[in-house]
């Protein structure tokens, strides 16, 4: 970064730090904070979508669909989310490759499962083994987004279902008395009002989501945990910037990052709650 960084061994501490903190790997560490934030902001809408679908399915008049919605929204209560991540990711990966396999190589005769191996034809590999490194990374990130959305969508389905149920029944009866159709009632009465009831649950879910982002590391994405371990590990004198085991320090930085993020989110949700409860017939709305 700086010119005097050519020979770090000879620098005094201030300059040494300025060089150390601007190495290429350090900058990748800083950028990985962006990865975490990107995951948060990309998955949030997808989670809402999944949750909305789940809640709608659970409210459906079609019995099998209702069962599906119920099963989807209650599974997270019984099974740890991390098991879903581990499962959903491999299953999704293998599923995509299997579908590509049967469409791209129809005349491949060998079975896909050979003992302990999962073998698809080379053209069906996802991403192709010839693809550059960044494609692999983007694909891994994409899978992680889907995995997160699937698991937390189930949480959201629970919250949204409860919110739909919480809208006062008299409101719907009035709408029906005005001759609104079921769809119109949903759009005009139910949907605008349920957000007040959903917000506490959704803000809680957002907090859980923030605190689940280190799981990205387990899914093989190069996130902040990965870089903290990588950079914090002891470096012998053979390295340009030798230092002892600094992982504790790096993790403390992550701790501060997460505390700031949750603290900030709490403030934002407080304001949002005040905003949506304006004009509602609730305790928060009347003041």
């Amino acid at each position: 970064m700086f010119e005097y960084c050519a020979d770090p061994g000879s620098l005094d501490s201030l300059q040494w730090w300025s060089c150390y903190l601007t190495t290429v790997k350090q900058v990748m560490f800083y950028k990985s904070f962006g990865t975490v934030l990107a995951l948060l902001f990309l998955t949030a809408p997808v989670i809402l979508l999944f949750g909305f679908g789940g809640a709608m399915a659970r409210r459906s008049r079609v019995l099998p669909l209702r069962w599906f919605g119920l099963a989807y929204s209650s599974m997270v209560r019984g099974i740890p989310d991390i098991i879903f991540f581990m499962f959903a990711l491999i299953a999704l990966d293998q599923g995509i490759e299997y579908i590509r396999h049967i469409t791209l190589c129809p005349d491949w005769t060998e079975p896909v499962r050979q003992g302990n191996d999962f073998v698809v034809c080379p053209q069906a590999k996802m991403p192709l083994s010839s693809a550059p490194q960044w494609v692999h990374q983007i694909y891994g990130f994409f899978l992680a987004v889907i995995g997160f959305a699937f698991v937390f969508g189930a949480f959201a389905a629970n919250t949204l279902y409860g919110a739909f149920q919480a809208v006062p029944h008299a409101q719907l009866e009035t709408a029906a008395a005005f001759g609104m159709s079921r769809a119109k009632m949903f759009r005009r009465i139910l949907l605008p009002q349920m957000w007040v009831y959903a917000l506490p649950g959704l803000s809680n879910l957002w907090m859980i989501l923030i605190k689940a982002t280190p799981l990205l590391f387990l899914l093989g994405v190069q996130d902040i945990v990965y870089w903290a371990k990588e950079l914090g590990g002891a470096k012998t004198a053979r390295f340009t910037y030798p230092h002892g085991d600094w992982r504790l320090g790096y993790f403390l930085v992550l701790l501060v990052f997460y505390l700031a993020l949750t603290w900030l989110s709490e403030r934002v949700f407080e304001r949002l709650t005040r905003r949506v409860s304006r004009g509602q017939a609730t305790m928060g709305g009347t003041t």
Binding site: I210, K211, A212, T213, P214, L215, F217, V225, A228, R247, L248, F251, L252, L254, L255, Y258, L259, T262, W263
Partner: peptide, 10 residues
Amino acid sequence: GSPLFIQFFI
């Protein structure tokens, strides 16, 4: 305010 995951590491 912090992930359990990070707490384990620390």
